[in-house]
């Protein structure tokens, strides 16, 4: 595109060119500035917490004692979600890319994408009203028969509104992310690799383990990490489903809390130092998810360069 020729022509449209390119450059910079100011404003509003008397902070022991249990809670919820959603998501993606009849594959992909279209508050309501009562029965059984494992220690919650339920709802919510990203990668597997494996007499599963999965490994990792980012920051599902409380090892009792739910539940009534505390908690969440996302994007971009898939 020779911009020189356009410049030399001069005339009435020149200022239009300048305005338009300036505006688009400004819009690009505004996005960078927005992300930067997210961090800046959160830090400004959170500062009072770090200067405050530890006794004034919720829990009475300083900010880090306050934030530690809910960071652990956030990680537990996200870990449960990923443990369930990653294998399931890979399975679904393989089904759509390599197992389903070609004619239906795309339609089935849309169906799974519908999972992503349902608003998080509806998942929260569903988890609260439908899933939790169902799981309460299973938790009761677990507490009686597997209670010696710390994570299944009884007495089980009668409402089923526990960490495990929240983790399962989160798993449903991150499933479409993991599925759609890994599906894209699976479809990019070089056809020749697959056909070569099949021609050597490999079964379909051997073909997948030998050609598709090795090719897609970085993609699967980054898909799982993007899912992790979503699970860490998801608010409503946890706020509605989990009946929160102090940090406990048992996943089938009420208790534990995540950062996002802690903010959502307390922010509307918060003022003064409590407000600063919640914003500081949001800052911690922001830093964690930012780190996870940056690593995931970095893996994707590195993969793009040497795969030759694009």
């Amino acid at each position: 595109m020779s911009t020189n020729a356009v410049k030399r022509a001069g005339g009435a449209g020149q200022s239009g060119d300048k305005i338009f390119s300036g505006a688009s450059l400004a819009a690009g910079c505004l996005i960078l500035a927005a992300l930067f100011s997210v961090a800046v404003f959160l830090i400004i509003e959170a500062l009072p917490v770090f200067g405050a008397d530890p006794a004034d902070v919720t829990g009475g022991d300083g900010f880090f004692t306050y934030i530690f249990p809910i960071v652990i809670g956030t990680v537990i919820a996200a870990a449960i979600a990923l443990l369930i959603a990653t294998p399931l998501g890979i399975g679904v993606a393989l089904f759509i890319s390599h197992y389903a009849p070609r004619r239906f594959a795309q339609g089935l992909g849309y169906v799974i994408d519908l999972l992503a279209a349902i608003p998080s508050v509806v998942y929260g309501a569903w988890g609260y009203a439908v899933l939790a009562p169902q799981l309460a029965i299973a938790y009761d059984w677990l507490a009686r028969n597997a209670g010696w494992i710390p994570i299944f220690e009884g007495p089980a919650s009668q409402t089923g509104r526990t960490m495990l339920t929240a983790g399962i709802v989160l798993a449903v919510m991150v499933l479409p992310i993991i599925t759609s990203l890994s599906r894209e990668i699976f479809l990019q597997t070089p056809k020749l690799h697959e056909e070569a494996a099949l021609a050597m007499g490999a079964t379909r599963w051997e073909m997948i383990t030998m050609s598709v999965l090795p090719f897609a490994r970085p993609g699967i990792i980054s898909a799982a990490m993007l899912g992790l980012g979503r699970a860490l920051g998801e608010t409503m599902a946890v706020a509605l489903v989990l009946s929160g409380g102090a940090l406990t090892a048992s996943l089938i009792q009420s208790g534990n809390q995540t950062i996002a739910a802690e903010i959502a539940l307390n922010f509307p009534e918060a003022y003064g130092l409590r407000l600063a505390e919640l914003i500081a908690a949001g800052l911690v969440l922001f830093v964690i998810t930012l780190a996870v996302n940056i690593v995931a994007r970095w893996i994707i971009s590195r993969h793009k360069e040497f795969s030759g898939a694009n």
């Binding site: 996005i31 992300l35 997210v38 400004i44 993007l226 980012g229 920051g233 959502a264 949001g282 930012l290």
Partner: peptide
């Protein structure tokens, strides 16, 4: 890069940012 990263901002953090 940062647009990609921004897609992963937790929605509650976006809310806190606007509130702040």
């Amino acid at each position: 890069f940062f647009v990609d990263v921004m897609t992963g901002i937790p929605s509650i953090v976006a809310g806190l940012f606007a509130a702040a």
